[in-house]
């Protein structure tokens, strides 16, 4: 087997530029969804004013290369690495952390990571990142970064349903999660929903679901139906932007499903605020 070598420095540089892009350029699918809500929200309402502010916010952030939101998140990094790839130089994890650190310094993003959950000492670099590695076919490396704000991370939830529970109970859990978040976590929300796997795999599916553009349905028809059904139910909650009521409660539902155990049906909802940020690239 011919091995392709990739310099650790390329991984570092890619992670750096992805972090800067994700934090300053709102994803086109997300911006389009906000604009669509703006068009449909009633005229002369605070709700419409607020959606207008979000559209202006995205424009200012991109123009001035300023963070879309001051919570520039803890960075989840998803790496798909080809089996015939080898990294030269640094190890991968430290290359990723160097990239994150460089991005947060150059981009003037907030360091929001504390070294110890009880001692709460800020690392000052927004590292370490949380790295999820998959070994795949091929000889390349694909990286996605997701700086995830904790206003919405805090409202994310998980449940171990019974295997016979079915789509209605999954839907109801998602709706309850949104209801419990109420106005606190910056609606209009995007729901990343994981179904199946083990406990930690389910949560990972939920987070991965948020990477998919929100205008693209799951290719499995029964899962796409579930996405629509969850969206339909959450639309009736009338939470609205900033909890002021109206149509802007949930702007996207992405579900990812995976194999699970005969005795279980894990469900995780990774809630995202309207500033859903991620960026993806292949390492050269």
């Amino acid at each position: 087997m011919k091995v392709r070598f990739i310099d650790a420095k390329n991984i570092e540089d890619t992670v750096k530029s992805l972090c800067i892009r994700a934090n300053t350029v709102l994803r086109p699918d997300v911006l389009e969804a906000i604009k669509d809500l703006y068009r449909r929200e009633k005229n002369n309402t605070i709700q419409k004013d607020m959606l207008g502010i979000l559209i202006r916010n995205a424009a200012v952030a991109q123009k001035e290369q300023m963070a879309i939101c001051q919570d520039t998140g803890m960075v989840a990094v998803f790496i798909d690495m080809g089996t015939s790839t080898a990294i030269r130089g640094d190890n991968m994890i430290s290359a990723v952390d160097k990239g994150v650190e460089a991005a947060y310094k150059e981009g003037c993003f907030r360091g929001s990571v504390v070294r110890d959950p009880l001692l709460r000492d800020n690392t000052g670099t927004n590292t370490p990142a949380v790295v999820h590695l998959r070994i795949v076919d091929g000889d390349g490396i694909k990286i996605s970064v997701m700086p995830k704000g904790f206003g919405s991370e805090n409202k994310s939830r998980m449940i171990m349903l019974e295997p016979t529970a079915g789509p209605e109970e999954i839907r109801d859990f998602c709706v309850e999660t949104v209801k419990a978040a109420g106005p606190d976590a910056c609606p209009p929300y995007v729901l990343g929903v994981g179904i199946g796997g083990t406990m930690e795999e389910c949560a990972l599916l939920a987070k991965r679901a948020l990477i998919r553009p929100i205008n693209v349905s799951n290719p499995e028809l029964h899962i796409a139906d579930l996405e629509r059904e969850i969206k339909k139910q959450t639309d009736t909650l009338n939470i609205g932007i900033m909890g002021l009521g109206g149509i802007s409660t949930v702007m996207g539902v992405n579900v990812e499903a995976g194999p699970t155990h005969i005795a279980g049906l894990p469900v995780a909802v990774n809630l995202s605020c309207h500033a859903l940020r991620s960026a993806t690239a292949v390492v050269d």
Partner: peptide, 28 residues
């Protein structure tokens, strides 16, 4: 309540900023 998730827009509404206390907390 202030517009949430619009920190870049709100930047233009702030004319001055200085540390007042607990400087060691950095962003906090």
């Amino acid at each position: 309540v202030a517009p949430a998730g619009a920190g870049a827009y709100l930047n233009s509404k702030v004319l001055g900023c200085e540390v007042s206390a607990f400087e060691g907390l950095g962003p906090e």
